[in-house]
Design a protein around this nucleic acid. Structure first.
Length: 125
RNA sequence: CCGGCAGGCUACCUUAUCGUCUCUUCGGAGAAGGAAAGUCCGGACACCACAGCGCAGCAUAGCGGCUAACGGCCGUCCGUCGAAAGGCGAGGACAAGUGCAACAGAAAGUAUGUACAGGUAAUGCUGUAGUGAAACCAGGUAAACUCUAUGCGGUGAAACGCCAUGUAUACCAGCGCAGAGGAUUGCGCGUCUGAUGCUGGAGGGUAGGCGGAUUGAUCUUUACAGUAAUGUUCAGACUAGAUAAAUGAUAAGGCUCGACAGAAUCCGGCUUAUGGCCUGCCUUUUUU
């Protein structure tokens, strides 16, 4: 069976309400330069996870840089989501934050993402 | 050649794999910029009385033209800087009032000194000399107040319109009371709305969905008019439309080793950031 590497619309975290709830009630795990805020919550039917990515305007003034980092994070998650999604038993909302002030390359970010997801699995499940 | 001036073009490429968004005839097709930026001007569009009157306020400023419009653009005169190519210009009015003004000078004005001459009842009453650009006569200055001419209502796509869901009033309609308050620009006028009660209908919120939204002062091109900006015209093209917000990642190869930088209602400008390439023009000094 081919591994699931898509990132469809249904798995994007869109609801403003849910994002607010995520920040106020969610727990988090960190692995520099990433931080994952997560919350077990209600989601629409047939959806096990919804994910959003955020990069602070304070750390990256230019829109180009923010876009670049968001894309890299999204890509790193997309390629590694099969390491976490099959293990989820209840619906979760995820928010990835970028905590560094330096732009990084894809490979180091992907390593961090793998470690972060492993850490999440050990702590939360 | 060096240096200077003006203008134009361009914005790494190819292949493979995985992924995102829109459209689709389900095969596929398309997917950031010259500045997408700053939000500084001008419009379109929408609503507020299609928006009124007066005052205040703001903007512009040789002359002529272009434009939907402009504070933009084109042409031209003048001034100014430069050796030149060329650049720059808050370039209307001080024959309305008020203010300001270095040096010189007694004095730049509710002034009258010195010397000489004239004159009177008397007096700077009159003239000349002297200072100065200018001396009861004007002149300079409006990036001084001011005046003149022209233009300008407000808000801003989270505008605005429609639909769905169905909580007990902040909405709508009718009737009655009442004129507080509110809206309309800063003020005044004018206009509109309008407290609480009854009856009937249905809202707000949930950043719900759809429209607005991409076919447009559009782009390429033919001919004509015009010094030009631009206009008219022939033929063709459809060129992002997202909504927590897509346009990416990885690998390999090539080259001159890639700057500034990411659409958010849409156009016309201006300003700022920035890699590379090309064209034309100028010749003060030095060298050939």
């Amino acid at each position: 069976m081919k591994s699931d590497q898509t990132y469809p619309k249904t798995e994007k975290l869109k609801s403003r309400k849910l994002i607010d709830k995520l920040f106020s009630e969610g727990r988090s795990v960190s692995k520099f330069p990433l931080r994952l805020v997560y919350l077990q919550t209600e989601l629409p039917e047939d959806t096990i996870v919804q994910v959003a990515v955020s990069v602070s305007k304070r750390n990256f003034k230019k829109a180009v840089d923010r876009n670049r980092i968001k894309r890299l994070i999204r890509e790193a998650y997309r390629l590694n989501k099969d390491k976490i999604k099959p293990h989820l038993e209840t619906p979760h909302a995820f928010m990835f934050l970028y905590t560094s002030k330096e732009i990084t390359d894809f490979h180091t970010l992907e390593k961090s993402m793998k470690k972060l997801l492993k850490k999440f699995r050990e702590e939360a499940l």
